[in-house]
Design a protein around this nucleic acid. Structure first.
Lengths: 205, 205
DNA sequence: TCCCCGATGTGACAAAAGTCGCTGCGTGAC
DNA sequence: GTCACGCAGCGACTTTTGTCACATCGGGGA
């Protein structure tokens, strides 16, 4: 809706971030609603012992931190620039005002947070009932939707580990295991899916 | 808001369920928004090999299945009567109509789904970075908020296992371990917190 | 009262995940 | 060109979890 986009753009504040820079931290009062204009943002939780669980990798054009903006509570997670990025920030109060004026905006927000919740449910299922190998298989499968069967590597094993909730070595083992079984092939740059059927089978074990 | 409650009550459909009865199943088209009038509902995901991960135990007065109602997608989880229950169902279309007419209702929905998302994030953190012992400790701690330090058992070990994402025997081990360390004491009916400080320490490892 | 059965207690094992400690590789900085 | 480092590869080993197989416990019914 054009009028709404315009109104949002008027109140939004742009912000530039260098790769690795922290945008906001979990537990702090809500930082506002963000949209990624360029680059990418990593939203994650950190455990005391330094492990990181990625909740979403926010691509260009997508929004994040809906939860705390909408319920007014503290940020549920930490946001860090995955690569250099520029984001726009919309204040909670402004957003609420605009949403009251434009019901379509309210519904857009509802749908976006519902999507988030749905995604979280599947993440819970993943962590709760799938092995690391299965989760890695799913992650790869997810990437094929974007890149096709030859995936130019965009994630380091360390990052893959943070996505699937484990550590680097275990991801490495899983990859080597899948490769040993002829399901995929990979080197430092690329993952190639050799047997999509079996990969799918591994993924929904 | 009285007028709204009235309007909702007018369109809502009541439904009775015997303990163990299935209300709706994940993957089916949205079943509507529900509110528990009496009893309790268990919302969970099931893996192919029969394991169950409880997402929420819905008490009297609370609502569930917001996600699919708000985004129109399929039910993200399965709902089963934990004990005999009566629930009210509000159709998606009706709800949307009412929400458009009453912005306060729309915000109430937003807040309720934001709460859900927040809860899911903490569940993810639990599964991803805590040991079973830690999760059990957290579960017990959570109960003390309701019952105080002597918790009349309402969950079987099997159910506790479904909540913390593991199996019965492991929960038993965790409980025995905590008891052996003098942190709690328990028998078939009751769990007693002996050392709240150490239990907390176990919980946020 | 006695029996049945769901809920538990537990030990022995099998498997998965996590830790350590290094070795190698390759690329960007100098 | 070579050095420093971040990323990866891997084997050995420790912990946690998950499985199995039974023995028990106790309360509610018949």
């Amino acid at each position: 809706p054009d009028a709404i986009v315009q109104a949002l753009a008027d109140t939004a504040q742009p912000q530039h971030l260098a790769a690795g820079e922290i945008l906001f931290i979990e537990g702090e009062p809500t930082a506002g609603l963000f949209m990624v204009e360029t680059g990418a943002i990593r939203v994650s939780r950190h455990s005391k012992d330094g492990r990181e669980q990625i909740l979403q990798l926010v691509p260009r054009g997508a929004t994040f931190n809906e939860v705390s903006v909408l319920d007014g509570g503290p940020n549920p997670a930490t946001a860090i620039a995955q690569i250099d990025a520029t984001v726009w920030c919309i204040d909670r109060a402004e957003l609420r005002r605009l949403a009251d004026a434009h019901p379509e905006l309210a519904w857009a927000l509802i749908e976006s947070i519902a999507r988030r919740a749905r995604h979280l449910v599947s993440l819970v299922e993943d962590l709760s009932m799938r092995s690391v190998r299965g989760r890695v298989a799913r992650l790869i499968l997810e990437q094929t939707a974007v890149h096709g069967d030859v995936i130019p590597r965009m994630l380091t094993q360390e990052e893959m580990a943070s996505r699937v909730g484990t550590v680097r070595e275990v991801v490495g083992r899983a990859l080597r295991g899948l490769a040993a079984d002829g399901i995929i092939d990979f080197d430092r740059q690329t993952i190639t899916v050799l047997d999509r059927a079996r990969l799918t089978a591994e993924a929904d074990a």
